[in-house]
C-alpha cells in the first residue's frame, strides 16, 4: 500500500520511472533502436545463454545507468514472470501413452512426462522471453512515452495514429484522476463494503466516468478550436540529442552480443 500512493501501478509507475531515469538524457531514437535491435537478436538467437545475458544486462542498465530502484524492477517483472512460468510449464510437460524421459507422473491412463527435449525447449523459451521482456522494460522505464511517440512519428507512422496516441496518453491521466476521485468518494460512503456492493459501485463509477468523458470531450474541443485548431495537431518537442559516446557504447554492446551469439551457435570455429 505504501508504494501505491507514490508510484501507482503499471503504466503510471513506468511513467514516473521514465521521468526520473538516469538515461533520460540519451537520445530516444538511439534507445528505441537499440532496444528493438537487441530484442530481435535475443528472440532470433533462441538460446538460453543469450537470453540470460540480455536479461541480466538490461536489468544492469536499468539499475546502474537508469538508477531505477531494484524493488521497482522486481515489481514490474512479477507479472510477466508469472505468465511465463505458467506457459513454460505447459511446454515442459508432455502428455503421452507410455512413460518416457526424465520424469513421469501417471494421470488416469495417460502419463505426464518431462523429456530432455521438452526441458530444453521450455528453458530456452523462458530465457528468450525474459530477455525480450527486459529489453522492453529497459526502454519504457528510461524513455518517456511522448519521446517514444516522437520516434514513431519520425518512422513515418501515420499522423492520425500519432495524434491519437498523444491524446490517449494525455487523457489517460485525466481519466485516472477522475476515476480516483470517484472511487474515493464512493469509498467514503462505504460503496466498497462487501463483494456485491463493490461490483455495483464499480459499475456505477464506470458509468459516471463515461458520462463525464463525453461532457469533457466537448469542452476540450472548444478549447482546441479557440486556440486556432483546424485539423492538425502539432506540438514543439525537444528530445535529447544523439551523442557519439552513447552511439559507440550501444554499438559495442550489440557487437558483444553478436559475438556471444556466434560463439553459442558454433559459427566461429567451423
Amino acid at each position: 500500500m505504501a508504494h501505491r500512493h507514490s508510484h501507482g501501478s503499471g503504466m503510471l509507475m513506468l511513467d514516473t520511472l521514465a521521468a526520473h531515469s538516469g538515461l533520460r538524457n540519451v537520445s530516444p531514437g538511439l534507445k528505441t533502436g537499440f532496444c528493438v535491435l537487441v530484442l530481435l537478436l535475443c528472440v532470433g538467437a533462441s538460446d538460453t545463454v543469450v537470453g540470460i545475458f540480455v536479461a541480466l544486462s538490461m536489468v544492469f542498465f536499468m539499475v546502474f545507468l537508469g538508477k531505477t530502484p531494484m524493488c521497482h524492477i522486481v515489481r514490474l517483472l512479477k507479472i510477466p514472470l508469472l505468465f511465463l512460468c505458467v506457459s513454460c510449464l505447459v511446454i515442459l510437460l508432455e502428455v503421452v501413452r507410455e512413460p518416457l524421459g526424465l520424469w513421469q507422473l501417471k494421470v488416469g491412463s495417460w502419463w505426464l512426462c518431462v523429456t530432455s527435449e521438452s526441458l530444453h525447449r521450455a528453458v530456452t523459451l523462458f530465457f528468450q522471453a525474459m530477455g525480450a521482456v527486459c529489453c522492453l522494460y529497459a526502454l519504457s522505464s528510461s524513455t518517456p512515452m511522448p519521446q517514444i511517440i516522437e520516434v514513431l512519428r519520425r518512422c513515418h507512422v501515420p499522423a492520425l495514429v500519432i495524434e491519437l496516441m498523444y491524446l490517449i496518453y494525455r487523457y489517460l491521466f485525466v481519466l485516472l484522476e477522475v476515476q480516483r476521485q470517484l472511487t474515493v468518494a464512493a469509498t467514503a460512503r462505504l460503496g466498497y463494503v462487501g463483494l456485491r456492493r463493490s461490483v455495483s459501485t464499480a459499475g456505477r463509477v464506470s458509468g459516471t466516468l463515461l458520462a463525464s468523458s463525453f461532457r469533457r470531450s466537448r469542452v476540450c474541443f472548444d478549447a482546441m478550436e479557440s486556440r486556432g485548431y483546424d485539423g492538425k495537431l502539432a506540438f514543439l518537442s525537444h528530445a535529447p540529442r544523439l551523442r557519439p559516446t552513447h552511439l559507440l557504447a550501444a554499438a559495442a554492446y550489440v557487437l558483444a552480443l553478436l559475438g556471444l551469439i556466434f560463439v553459442r551457435k558454433g559459427w566461429l570455429c567451423p
Binding site: M145, R216, Y229, A234, F235
Partner: peptide
Amino acid sequence: FQEAENQILAVTVEGEVSFGPLNL
C-alpha cells in the same frame, strides 16, 4: 478555460504552450 485539465492537450509544458503559435 475554467478547468485547466480541459484545456491542456500536450504531454509536455513546452509542447502545450507551442500548440497555439503553431496553429498560427
